[in-house]
Simulated scan of single mutants.
Amino acid sequence: MHPLGLRFVGHSTVRVELAGRVVLTDPVLTNRVSALTRVTTASTPADRADVDLVLLSHLHGDHVHLPSLRLLSRHVRVIAPRGAGDWLRSKGVRQVEELAPGEELVDGDLRITGVAAAHSGHRWGPRSTRGPQAKAMGHLIEGAGTTVYAAGDTDLFPGMAELAEIDVALLPVWGWGPTLGPGHLTPARAAEALELLRPRVAVPVHWGTLALAGLPRAPGRHGARMRRLLIDPPHEFAAKAQGSATRVIVTPPGEDVALPDLARGPRT
């Protein structure tokens, strides 16, 4: 049996099975997120079964989705960016714990380490000054001799080069709309991130799952562009990553990731 199991549930949601624990990143488990509609395979109860830990990278509505969190067991440990705990509890989310970049927590044989991210941490985005705010972050998930880097939403930042011995990097390569705001990786910038991170495997996420309702079916160039953006970014990322030491595994939303042998060998 492979020591690591990954399922790309969709958007930034990945089911990580490692060291006897089940982790869910930024769970989006419903068919609607505010004005966004899920345009791919619906999430199933199997995606959220037996979850032990939830890792929340930042407070944006497509990453901290309250209706999805309410679908999980009340006993799940919800790990939120430091400063977000009181707000989440006020919304009925139980078992909330806080973590900041550089801090660690342990669950059984699993260790979670907070990592910095270059992204807005405000609930309503970078231009708002009202409402909850907590620093955006990523996570290192370590156990059974394997390390997974869940980047959350981020642009490039120098500290990426300091994250050593990553086996699998879950890297965002687009978003849900026709354009990207600040604090995101495009396919080209995600390929640049590989040169800093040097993971053995990269799995592109944050693509092909959500879109503004009706936009993919719109006539003309706007609909055509959105339809392309629901498909092309991970393949553009894989093409730009050719020649690197990292194997890119493009996995459609709703499917298990076909992982190779992750036995550690010498790095070049």
Rank of each mutant, 00 (worst) to 15 (best):
V168S: 01
G10Q: 00
P233F: 02
R7C: 05
G220C: 02
P27M: 08
L171Y: 06
G254F: 14
L24R: 06
R189A: 14
G223Q: 01
A42H: 12
L69K: 08
L24Y: 07
S12W: 00
V28H: 02
G265N: 08
R82S: 14
H139R: 06
L71W: 08
M1L: 09
I79E: 00
A191T: 10
R221K: 04
V93C: 11
V16M: 03
G243A: 11
T25I: 10
G20E: 10
W124M: 12
P178I: 15
D167Q: 09
P126G: 06
P132Q: 06
H58L: 04
L171N: 04
V203S: 08
Q95E: 15
V248P: 05
A134R: 01
A151P: 00
E17F: 03
A213E: 14
G83P: 00
R189C: 07
L215F: 10
L66E: 07
W174L: 05
I79G: 01
L53N: 02
G5W: 01
R123C: 02
Q242L: 14
S244R: 14
Q242I: 10
I166A: 00
R200P: 03
D86F: 00
G223Y: 02
A245H: 13
T268E: 13
D52Q: 05
R225D: 04
R82H: 10
V93T: 09
V148N: 05
V14C: 01
Y149S: 01
A188V: 12
P187L: 11
G220K: 01
P158H: 13
